[in-house]
Amino acid sequence: MTVPVVYSACEAYPTVRFVIATQPVASSLFVNPPQNLTVVGVDVKQRYKGTHGIWRLMGDLRREYAIDAFIDLHDVIRTHIMGVYCRMHGIPMSRIDKGRSEKRELTRETGKNLHPLISTRQRYFDAFKRMGFDFGETFTSVYPTGADTTLFADITKPKSGGERWIAIAPFAKHEGKIYPPGLMSLVVDTLSQRAGTRLFLFGGGGYERDILEEWACEHPHNVTSLAGKRYGFAKELALLSHCDVMLSMDSANMHLASLVELPVVSVWGATHPYCGFTGWHQNPANEVQTDLPCRPCSVFGNKPCQRGDYACLRGIDYHAIVQRLDNVINQR
C-alpha cells in the first residue's frame, strides 16, 4: 500500500532522494521506481537481526545515504528502535498513526462504533505531511505507459481481440477473509463456460496451489493457475495490467491490482472496508459483503468466528459476485 504514496512523493519532490528500507521480498514490488527513489532490501534474519542489527542498519543507512529525516510507515518494534536511533542522533522523524484504538472500537463484540476510519493511504500521506512533505495523489500505475506483453510471455500469449481476461485471487492469510473454496469454484465454473473469457488464478503454494491447479485442470482451455510458480511481481503485475478485472479477497492481491489501475471486485468477511485497507482508487461499489451485526469482528481477519459459521462469507451468493464482475467488465 505504500508504493502509490511513495511514488507520488517522489514526483512532487524530484530533488529529494527518498530511501525505502523494507524486507527483500517487498523490495521487488517497487517496479519502475522514480529516479529519486532508492529501495533497500533489509535482511532482518542475518546482518540486521535483533536490536543490535536494527541499530547497525541505521548506522549503515546514515553512512550510505546521509539521511536527513526518518518517516516510520510501519509503527512496529523494529521501526521504534530506528526511531530511538534517530532521536539520539538528532534526526527528525514522524510516525504513522495507525488508529489502533479506533479500530478496536470498530471491531469490538458489542457497541461497535461503525463508521469509516481514516484510510491507511491517508495515514501514510499524513506521516509525510508531518515531515513537511505535502503532496497529492499523482500515482497511476507502475506501468504508466502500459506493460509490454513480452514481460509475461512465459505465462501466456498476448490477449486476442475481444477476449476478456479475469484475474482471480481466492485466498488470504486468514480464514476470516476467504470466500469458501466450494462456492468460489462455482464462480470459476460459471466464468470459464463463457466464450472469449480467460481466467488467471493467483495464489501461493501448498493447499492453495493444489486447489487452483485442480480448477485449472478442470478447465484446461481457458483457466491458468499461477499459484506457486514464482514468476515475480514485475511479470505478474504486467499480466494484471492487461486484465479487465480482478476478483480478490481483502488481501495483498487487491493492492497489487491497484498498482496497475486494474478494477477489483473485493469480497469482505470478518474484516470491513471501514477499517481503511481498501485498494488505491478502488470503487466502493465493487465491494461485496453481507450486513451482519457482528461485522467487522477483526481488523486483519485473524480472530475465530464468534458465531462459528463464518456466515459473513458463506452468506454471499456466488451469483452476486459474478454479477459484480460483469458490471465492471461492461463498463470498460
Rank of each mutant, 00 (worst) to 15 (best):
T290A: 02
S248H: 00
T149A: 15
F202Y: 09
A195N: 14
V3L: 06
F30G: 01
I178N: 00
D309H: 04
Q331F: 04
R87G: 06
H89Q: 01
P116S: 12
G301Y: 08
F70L: 14
D210F: 05
G182R: 03
A26H: 14
I166W: 06
C294Q: 12
E261F: 03
H74N: 10
T278H: 04
T138E: 12
E261K: 14
I155F: 10
I54F: 13
M131S: 15
F133K: 08
L73K: 07
Q35Y: 04
W55T: 11
F133M: 11
T197W: 14
H281N: 15
E175Y: 02
F125C: 03
S192D: 02
G53F: 09
K49A: 15
S298W: 10
G90W: 08
M88L: 15
V39E: 09
I321T: 05
R63E: 14
A66Y: 01
R56E: 13
V31M: 08
E261V: 04
E11D: 13
N302R: 05
I321P: 06
L57E: 07
L226G: 02
F135W: 07
V328D: 05
N302M: 05
S258A: 15
A216G: 08
R104L: 11
H52N: 12
G50C: 05
Y65M: 08
M131Y: 05
M1I: 04
D148P: 10
Y143D: 12
G206M: 06
L262I: 00
M1Q: 10
L37V: 02
R194Q: 15
G203K: 04
S101N: 05
V19A: 09
L201A: 03
Q122N: 13
H219K: 08
C305A: 06
Y85M: 00
V264I: 07
M82G: 15
